[in-house]
Design a protein around this nucleic acid. Structure first.
Length: 233
DNA sequence: AACTCCTGCAACCGCCTCTGC
DNA sequence: CGCAGAGGCGGTTGCAGGAGT
């Protein structure tokens, strides 16, 4: 029997101090990212391994690109969200230097609102005539995110677990509903080429497409997807 | 200046998937 | 094949700081 990931009573919680950051950075520089379970002890940190991993991935990694999202990145997130739903790690994986947490936060704090202001339902990327204007719907709290909304929205028919948690399926439903405008086909032979000085084009190479949950994505994409971006721009 | 409200972000929690045994 | 642990992920929370009154 293996030991649990961490002894919770012996670990620090909350914000990381500079000393803790430095210990983690030093350790990973020397030994690389390895077994997160053993890193805290080896690095002299009173932290859970998961916490170390999160801190490294979301904040300390040297290749992180911090600061505001460019318009190109916003576009890409919106496109990918229409395609993939709340699969933040997949979306972030196509935004060099961005983390899933960062993308998720940016979506919840900026992009959702932006889409709503444009009359687009951020959950399914459809034009939404019923959506109240932003002024009447002040803080779309993170708790009102797509998934939690779908969790509690009893007006929505109960779908499979996948469908409940997956905006792809939700977006996919746009074809079920002929009353709302649906958008033309998205070119899915996509591959990301990131040119920081100019623009981002999206591409999925074949290998990447496989990587993205082949069963659901390809099914959803081939059959149903209703991409947002042509509306957005 | 003081207070309240709002916003953004870092971090935690709990579940799911993967992997090794 | 089933079990258990580790890693990964998305949802959610808490707090600091800014904006508004």
């Amino acid at each position: 029997m293996r030991k649990p990931c961490c002894e919770k009573q012996d670990t620090n919680k909350g914000a990381w101090s500079k000393q803790e950051d430095q210990k983690l950075i030093d350790y990973i520089r020397r030994h690389g990212e390895g077994c997160w379970r053993t890193i805290p002890q080896a690095a002299g940190l009173l932290r859970c391994g998961k916490s170390c991993r999160l801190r490294w991935i979301n904040y300390l990694r040297p290749d992180l690109k911090r600061g505001n999202f460019a318009e190109d990145e916003e576009d890409l997130i919106i496109k990918l969200h229409a395609l993939l739903g709340n699969r933040w790690s997949l979306i972030a994986g196509r935004l060099p230097g961005r983390t899933d947490n960062e993308v998720k936060n940016y979506w919840n704090s900026h992009l959702r609102r932006k889409l709503m202001n444009m009359g687009i339902d951020p959950n399914n990327h459809r034009l939404n005539q019923n959506l109240p204007p932003r002024s009447q719907n002040p803080r779309p709290s993170p708790t009102a995110t797509a998934s939690s909304a779908s969790k509690h929205d009893v007006s929505q028919p109960l779908k499979t677990k996948l469908a409940e948690n997956d905006q792809v399926s939700d977006a996919a439903s746009c074809l079920d509903d002929d009353s709302t405008p649906c958008l033309p086909d998205l070119n899915l032979d996509l591959k990301i080429t990131l040119n920081y000085s100019s623009s981002i084009s999206i591409n999925f190479v074949e290998e990447e497409k496989k990587e993205i949950d082949q069963s659901t994505l390809s099914r959803d994409v081939e059959s149903n997807l209703c991409p947002t971006l042509p509306l957005f721009r």
